[in-house]
Amino acid sequence: MSGNIVLISGANQGIGFEIAKQLSVIPNYHVLLGSRGLEKGESAVLQIKNVGGSVEAIQLDITDGQSITAARDLVETKYGRLDVLINNAAILLDFQVNADYTLGQAMQDTFATNTSGAANLVETFLPLLKLSAVPRVVFVSSTVGSLHTFADFKPSYTMTKYFAPAYACSKAALNMLMLLYNVQYQEKGWKINACCPGFRQTNFCDYDDKAGPVEEGASVAIELATLGKDGQSGTFVNMKGAIPW
């Protein structure tokens, strides 16, 4: 296939689904919609195909090494390379913390998906990304992962109602992971960035009525996923521009 091959983790719902939908209708972009459950992925694909998107479902659980390897093998066999990898899959467990489920346990489980899972996904797909003319890796992060934000804390609706230490720490670590990959591959022409979609109406926040439209939240990831050879790398951005580290 001559166009851009894109893999998105956790794309059967929320921000991931919206990124998949918008990317799939861009000419010369074909989306592999990753989902832990293939049935849910196929259901999401049907919705996107109804608007004319170029997309297919792929089973992908980023906490399962065998699942990641199987996905890599499938992509290699069918397409021979990967042009864009969007690390979107994430979980939020902080609100389940109680006497029986400690913050430490929540942090271990959260990091397994949000950070370690993302690292395993990149590592497994590195050989296929190296075959792209312009490899692009996008880490869907969050402003709550900004150390500056909490070092100079100013209360806001999202920062107080959705105060989530395990999630915030996992996203801060994800930003560092992005920078470490950028150090290794920026000079080789790779475009590796992190972005925050903002506070959006997804199941993450139980479709909070103060959250913005999910369609708008996908725009930054779309921009980073479609960068050309002169695009930026090593940035942490949202719709307004750079986010303080």
Results as ranks from 00 to 15, higher is better:
residue 5 I to Q: 11
residue 6 V to R: 01
residue 10 G to I: 10
residue 11 A to D: 01
residue 23 L to S: 04
residue 27 P to I: 04
residue 29 Y to L: 06
residue 29 Y to D: 01
residue 29 Y to N: 11
residue 34 G to D: 03
residue 39 E to S: 13
residue 39 E to A: 14
residue 42 E to P: 01
residue 49 K to E: 15
residue 49 K to C: 04
residue 52 G to P: 03
residue 52 G to T: 06
residue 53 G to L: 11
residue 53 G to R: 05
residue 56 E to M: 05
residue 70 A to Y: 03
residue 75 V to F: 06
residue 77 T to E: 14
residue 79 Y to M: 12
residue 86 I to E: 02
residue 87 N to F: 09
residue 92 L to P: 00
residue 97 V to A: 02
residue 100 D to T: 12
residue 101 Y to I: 13
residue 105 Q to L: 12
residue 106 A to C: 14
residue 111 F to V: 10
residue 114 N to V: 10
residue 115 T to F: 15
residue 116 S to T: 13
residue 120 N to C: 12
residue 120 N to Y: 12
residue 121 L to P: 00
residue 124 T to R: 07
residue 124 T to H: 01
residue 124 T to G: 04
residue 129 L to I: 12
residue 130 K to V: 07
residue 133 A to D: 15
residue 138 V to T: 08
residue 139 F to V: 06
residue 142 S to T: 13
residue 146 S to R: 02
residue 148 H to E: 15
residue 148 H to G: 00
residue 148 H to L: 09
residue 152 D to V: 07
residue 155 P to A: 13
residue 155 P to H: 08
residue 156 S to H: 02
residue 158 T to K: 06
residue 160 T to N: 10
residue 162 Y to K: 08
residue 165 P to F: 07
residue 177 L to A: 04
residue 178 M to D: 03
residue 184 Q to Y: 03
residue 185 Y to K: 05
residue 187 E to I: 01
residue 188 K to Q: 15
residue 188 K to D: 15
residue 190 W to F: 05
residue 190 W to Q: 07
residue 191 K to S: 07
residue 193 N to V: 08
residue 193 N to K: 03
residue 194 A to R: 01
residue 196 C to F: 00
residue 199 F to L: 03
residue 203 N to W: 02
residue 206 D to P: 00
residue 207 Y to L: 13
residue 207 Y to I: 09
residue 215 E to Y: 04
residue 217 G to N: 05
residue 218 A to D: 02
residue 224 L to P: 01
residue 231 G to D: 13
residue 234 G to Q: 04
residue 234 G to S: 04
residue 237 V to T: 14
residue 238 N to P: 05
residue 238 N to H: 10
residue 239 M to K: 06
residue 239 M to C: 03
residue 242 A to K: 11
residue 244 P to W: 05
residue 245 W to V: 10
